[in-house]
Every structure is written in structure tokens, then in C-alpha cells.
Design a protein around this nucleic acid. Sequence first.
RNA 1: GGCGAGGUGGCACAACUGGCUAGCGCAAUCGGUUCAUACCCGAUAGGUUGUGAGUUCGAGUCUCACCCUCGCUACCA
Length: 504
Amino acid sequence: MKEKFSIFTAIAYTSAKPHIGNTYEIVLADAIARFKRLLGYDVYFQTGTDEHGEKIATKAMEIGLTCQEYCDNISQEIKEIWDIMDTTYDKFVRTTDENHEKVVGNIFEKLLEQGDIYLGNYEGWYCIPCESFFTESQLKDGKCPDCGREVVKKSEEAYFFKMSKYQKRLEDYIDSHPDFIEPESRKNEIMNNFIKPGLLDLCVSRTSFDWGVKVPSNPKHVVYVWLDALTNYITNIGYDTDKTTEKFHKYWPADLQIIGKDIIRFHMIYWPIFLMALDLPLPKKIFGHPWLLMNEDKMSKSKGNVLYADDLVKEFGVDAIRYYLLHEIPYGHDGNITNDLIIDRINADLANVLGNLVNRTIAMAKKYFDGHIENKKEIESIDSELISLINHLKENITKRMDDLEIGKSLDEIFELLRRSNKYIDETMPWVLAKDNDKKNRLATVLYHLLESIRVSAIFLSPYLPNTGIEIKRQLNQMNQSFEFQENLIYDVLEPSPIFQRIKM
RNA sequence: GGCGAGGUGGCACAACUGGCUAGCGCAAUCGGUUCAUACCCGAUAGGUUGUGAGUUCGAGUCUCACCCUCGCUACCA
């Protein structure tokens, strides 16, 4: 039986069209999912949209739509962007799905029954005109941060979750599972700022708006969005409080949850504790990925520096944008994006190194052998390094991918591509071509190059799926072996550039 | 204020528990070559490793002080 691998992204909040930074997450998860499938895993890959909450209700009202209509539109828009990026999720979930809402209600009632949730009073600073609660730290000079007017102390009936009850268990779990949260720096932040000082009970219901899952036993309350949103990971693979499905047992716990660094707190504290309360296993790993900055600045509509995936794809192509996202965003800290940086990467890596290698190799195969290449096995010592690099590619990439060093895993492929370009200059096929006695050596050299390209294309396809397909098409070779093959027969097609250089 | 990370050639980064002329990629300059998409290959240049002091035979790597940047600091998600 195939080993399973389940991967979940956070669900996107439907308050606005996602920009390229938000899109990074799904592409990152997709590359990992595709890579695992390539290695033969039975992969389950889930993403979706988070649609409840006060912000959504306000937005919808502003535009004059019902909440549901508004969410339908944005959810669809987000799904389309995920599709434009060629992501291969198995399921796109929505928190407004009927089943999800039902199970969230059940979970709430179960936790209430167990005594993990209790009815209490929420006390906070309340701005009457804004109808909003604020915490002490949110206030600006003791006044409402939105309108600047006086706030009053007000208390309101609300349900609370006893976080403190699980604090010790959570702390022990995190301590004894060093790989649970990555990167480590994020883990330390949460540990030092929240867990160690002592967890406060979390208010898990709201009465000030009604766009959410109603608490079944007390429908004037809606379930707090995070309890609603976080549980998407289990409700959509068949969890319910009274029964669970085979699918659930197969794919839970998640092998990997990919989330933005901004919501790591919710995934490191509330999510594990909810799971503990439900007596369910915790995800094996949660990765809080960094952000994508536009010219070193956080993207925001008000700054007018927002880049959108669909625009970028129209201009540069999906694979180029996927390459940029996957290669340029480091593991531990924010990455940067600008038009010029994108063009730099396309020209330097995709056109000069990859595109040109494929093009010149296929062109030579065409020119010298009319496209028909067999391995004549006239080996020279220089060949061994190239072949060894080909044969180690899988191992090297896998190591990087397991460490979530996605950019570096791409570098492993490019190292082979660069080595291959160098190999051409070392072996000088155009010189061999002039000497009839060197025909077999020439064929051997080209065969080695074709094999290098074939294996590179296979490993490139999780990152650049269209490019992988196009290279294989030009090679006219469908062998999927990860290692150097001795005896394939190539009949390559006419070469055509896979990435055009872009004039700056 | 508290906790944490970091300041290395134009840019983005590397250098395990201190040790050989501080590395790589991109950009730049020069040269060679021509199969290829007018940067394919090679070479060169470029850093007193934030500042100051200290420990040591020897420090980017340890200690102290200072300067600067960034992240987190609970119910908006």
C-alpha cells in the first residue's frame, strides 16, 4: 500500500481578493504535494476559504450583497486564482458548506457538555458608536482606535474555552515534539509571549453579529470564527463528534499544515488545544511560512503596492511566477518581489540556464543525428561527474524538501543544469562533429545530456509543471525513471525555446 | 518596556563546536568559443565581515559596551 501524505493550507479569508503574497502559500503547498505524488505517495491536499465573521458581514453590507452572495463571489475568485496557478488541491473547502457548519455546531456542543466551554461574561472596553469591543492594548491613548472617541467598560454574555486547562499539556507536547512548529524562531515567540506566561481563556462566541455558525443550544450566539475556521481541517475529511469515516482515519493527523506566519498563534495554541479537547491527534508538522514583500514593503491596498497573481501570470506565465515564488522566498524570513527581480530570475535561470541548455542540446541532436540518439557508450572520465550528479538528484532534492527548503531544492536541479551546460563546453560537440571517427563519442555526449535533461525535467515538474511537460514533449521521451538510464532511444522533436529572455 | 532574530563585496545569501589567501549565485569588467534564445564557457575585479574595546598563537565565529534593522507582544482575521 502507498504511504499517505496529507497536506493542508490555511483557508483564505474572503475579505478581499488575495494578492501574490497570499497566493504564495497555495503554490508552496502545491509544489510539496506534487513532489510527494511524484515519489509515489498517496497524497491528500486540501485548501479553501474561511467565510464567516464580522468583517465579511460588514463588507457584504457595504456592497449591498447578502453575506452568502458576497462569499460565493470571493470564494469563486480565490478558487480561480488557485487554478490559474495550476495548483492540484484535492478538495477546496468552504466554511459555509452545510456539513462543515453542522459539525462545527456539534463540536461546540460537545465541548460545552464536557465543560471545556462555559458561559461567562466578556468584559472589555466598548465603543458605543462603533459597536465594537477593544482590549486594553488595542486602545489608542485610552480611546477607540477606530474613531478616537471615549470607550466604556462593558460586559456581555459570552462562551469561553478553558485554555488554561490544557496549558501544561500543550507546553509538554511542544517541548517533546521539536519538529511540531517550524521555523523554530516562531515557536519561541509564541512560547515566550503566550504559553509560558499563562494562557487566558478564549472567548469563543459572539452576539454582536450573526454571520457565522449558530450555537445550537443558544442561537443568539455565533461560534467564534477561529473555532469555526480551524476545524475545517477535520470536518472536511469526515470527522463528526459521534462518528468518523475511514477517510478521516486515513488522512488525519495531517503530515503538514502550511500557514502564514501571521496566524501561527492560532495554529500553535488554539488548534492543538481544540484537538486535545476532542481527543484527536495533533498534526505532525505546522510550517509558518514567511511573507512576500513588495519592494521590501508589506503589500497593502492603501499603499497601492499590491501585485496580483493573475496579472503577473498574464505578463510572465504561470511557471515563471511559480519559479519566482518557490525559489526566492527563503525558509525563515520574508522574501522580496518586484518586476525587475522577476525578470532577473527569468533571464538568468529560466532562459539562460534551463531554456538554453534544452534548446542547444536538442538542436545539436537534430543537427548531427537528425534527432536520433542512442547511447554509444564511448565513455571518458569527464562523464562520471555528470552522471553521478544525475543519480544523486533525487536524494539531494528529497533532503531539501523534507527540510522545507524549497528554494534550495530547486537549486539542486539548477546545479545539474549548470553542470550540463558546462559539460557541453568541456566536451565541445561541435568539434567532435567535424571528425567522423568521433561520431560515437558525439552520440554518447549528447545521450548524457539528454538524460540529464530528462531527469531534470522530471524533478522540475512539481515546481514548474508546464515546463516539465514541454521539455518531455521536445525530448519525445516518456521514461519516468529517476536515475540515469543506459539504453534509452531518443528521437527528439524540433527544438523551440521554453523561456524567452525578457528585455529589461 | 519585555522576549527573540540579525547586521558579511551593487543585490540576495554561505562559512560545523574559533584555525589554512572569508565562499556561492545574480549583476559588473575582460577574454575565449560558437552547438544554442546577442551573456555559452573561462578569468578578473570588488568586503579593514555595523562601531569600539577585550580574550587568544589565531575571531565573521567567544566576552563587554554602543549603534542600527527586523519579528512577536491574545480574542480583526
